[in-house]
Every structure is written in structure tokens, then in C-alpha cells.
Simulated scan of single mutants.
Amino acid sequence: MSYTPRHLIRAPFLRGGRNADVASRNERHLLSEIHRKPGLARAELISHLDLTQQSVHRLVETLAERGLLRIGDPVPPKGRGQPSPAVFLNPDYAYTLGISINTDKAGVCLMDFAGGHDTLTIDIEGLNREPALDRIEEAVAKLTTSSGRSEDKLFGVGFAIAGYHVTGTQYNAPLPLQDWSLIELGPLLSGRFKAPVWLENGANAAAICENLMGVGRHLSHFAYLSFNYGFGGGVVMNGKLLRGAHGNAGEFSGMFDNENNYKRPALELLIRRLNENGLSITSVDRLKREFQPDWPGVADWMDEVVPNYNRMMNAICAIIDPQAIVFGGEIPRKLAEMFIARTEWFNRPRYGIARVVAKPIISEIERDASAVGAAALPFTSEFFRGS
């Protein structure tokens, strides 16, 4: 039997019997609206949902009784009518843990049900899987203790790893993470953390975070570029993560053949070029913290990479037509600005009118977006209308 985290959800979170969901379809719709607009008046929910007033009132009451919602003070109506109570997600209902694995760092995030979160970053460079997990468990214990959360409120764990999805809960990660690759991570991690675990690749998890807390608050269609040791990405369409048939939609490195694979915007390749030019940059984290545009080797590397970068940018626009292309992952801001300045659109006007193209945007999310997105994954998977 294939691994699925839903079978491991603890009974107190379920609506009914053993095979029940945590929320019905209508409850998920209502929770999604409140998640998107905290403090929305109960009366306003009716205009956002295809439900009667009585149904909305009943759903709110039921969810409040279960502890998922908090009822606030009455909100004055925008027009005629009586004041209606504000409705909020209850942050104390449950929490999740998010873990992201990169080649040199791991991010750990604790997120409450209302989306409040705290993060830690730990060094795992050179560590195999088990010693790295030991360090991650120490960070989890630190976050849980400092937040005052009890284990019985842990709904689940979201886990994100750099690399592409293969099958089941197996991922194919970069060489420094070979010990994590091509094994069933779901059962392994569920046993380790004594909780259901939802898995995603790191770039998709970062795109989920961007969708919830970044440009997704204003835009419904965007591509997310994840500049890390390798290079990947994610796609959000109609406000939801597009995973594709095999879980690898947005795996933009797949556009490059063997020859051009070494001329793609992966930060590993830039680090290699910098070291060839006499600098000692040992990790992606150090590159992000210390990057300078005038370092020897940067200009030459950009000249080699930009033609492939421009083909990729134009392919993204031609295929998915997003409103924006977000530069995220671990790219230094100054390097992202260099790429954006050299973006060339292959836009051939017709009758004097050119196609509208995506706007390049640098992500404003400073904390580990993959860890935050991973922490959101159990909630978006089970309580809301998708990621």
C-alpha cells in the first residue's frame, strides 16, 4: 500500500469516524475565505460563497465549536443591516512543522493555524541524512518549547527537499543530498516525527509560500524561479500550485540539453566559476550573504548564461502566460537585478501591438520560503482549497 499522510491524521482532528476528512468541501471553502481575509464579517462571507445565509451561520457555528474559528466583535455593515461578528482562524487550534532541505542548510518552521510562524536555519553541510535529522529534531524541540505548543496540537509535518519528484515519496536530489535521494521519505519521516508528513520539492514549497505571503496576495498567475545549488521553479495558476502529471511542473532546468545544462542559472555553477577566479565561496548561503557584482568571474558567467536565461523566460511567457515571474530561492538580490536588467523579450509586434509579457519581480520573502511553504502544506492540503 502506498504511503499517504491522511491515514495518519489523529482522531481529534477528524470530523467523524476513522475515514472522515478534517473538513467538508463547504467548510474548506469557508476556511479559505477567512484565511485569505482574516476578520471578515460573517455576513460578508455569504457574498463570497455559493451558500445560503443559514448554511454559512451553521458552518461558522460548527467550526467555532470544534475550535477552528474565533468569533470576534461585531463589524459595522458597509450598507444597511445589523453589525455582524468578525470571524478569524483560531491560531491555537493546531500547528504544523515545516522542514526544508538544501545542500548546505536546513530550514525549520513552526506555523499556527492562522498562519503565524517562526523559523530557524541550521547548518547541515557535509552531514548525511541521519545526523542531519538529529540536528533538525533539536531545532524542532527548540521551536516547540519556545512557542509553548503541546505535541497533541501538532497536526502534521510538511517536508520539502531540493530535487525533482520520481515516484511515491521519492525525490532525486543534487549530489550533496545523495543520501536523501531515491528512498521513500514519507514512511521514514513519519516514523521519525511521529506525525503524518506531506512532501513536496523545495521549489514548489517556496512557490506555495510566495502564493500565500508574497505576490500571490495580489496576483493569481505567476511563475516562481528557484535559484539554489541547482535551478528549478514552480507555477501558480488561478491561485493554486500547478503540480503537473508527475509533480514536476515548473522544473525549468529540464529545458536545457546536456551541453546547455552547464549554462543555466544554477548557483552551483556560479560558485564554481568564482572559485576558479581565486575566490573562496564554499556554500550557497555564503554566496547570498556576501555577493558583489564586481567579483572576478561574475561578468563572464552572466555572458554565458544570459542567452539560455532569455530563452527560458520567453518560453515561460509563451507557454503559461503568467502575470509575473518571481525571482526567488537563494539568489542574491543584486544578482537578480542583473538578470532582470538583461532580460530580452522575443516579442514581435503585429499591427504595431506587441503581446503583454510577464513582469519580473524579486521576491520580498526573506525567511526560508521553502520551510514556510512546507509548514503551510498540511493545512492547505486538508483545510483549505489547495495550495
Rank of each mutant, 00 (worst) to 15 (best):
P77W: 08
L14C: 02
L14I: 07
L40W: 05
L51F: 03
L45P: 04
A64R: 15
S32E: 12
L59E: 00
G39C: 04
R28K: 15
I34A: 01
I71C: 02
R58V: 05
G79T: 10
R66K: 15
V60G: 04
Q54T: 15
P38G: 00
S32R: 12
L59W: 03
S32I: 09
F13V: 04
E44K: 12
R25L: 07
S24F: 08
G72H: 13
T52N: 02
D73C: 10
P74M: 06
R15C: 01
R28N: 04
F13K: 00
I71A: 01
T62Q: 10
H48I: 07
E27V: 10
N26D: 15
L63M: 13
A23C: 10
H48K: 13
G67C: 11
T62H: 08
S24R: 11
K78Q: 13
E65P: 12
L49M: 05
R36N: 06
L68R: 13
V75Q: 09
I46V: 15
G79S: 12
R25P: 00
R15A: 01
A41P: 07
A64F: 01
N19P: 00
H57E: 07
D50T: 11
S47W: 08
R28A: 03
L59A: 01
L68G: 05
P77C: 12
L30E: 05
Q53N: 09
R36Q: 06
A23V: 03
I71G: 01
A23S: 05
V75S: 02
A11Y: 10
L51M: 14
R15K: 10
A43L: 12
S55A: 12
L51H: 00
A41D: 04
R42F: 03
L40E: 01
Q54P: 08
A23Y: 03
N19Y: 10
Q54C: 12
T62N: 06
F13D: 00
S24G: 05
L69R: 08
P77H: 06
V22E: 01
A11T: 07
S24D: 05
L31W: 13
I34H: 02
R15P: 03
R15G: 00
G17T: 04
V75G: 03
L45T: 08
R15D: 02
S24Q: 10
S47N: 11
S32A: 11
L30T: 04
Q54R: 15
G67S: 06
P76W: 10
R25T: 07
P38E: 00
S32P: 09
F13E: 01
S47V: 06
H29W: 11
G17R: 05
R36K: 14
A23K: 02
G79F: 12
A43Y: 13
S24I: 06
I71T: 06
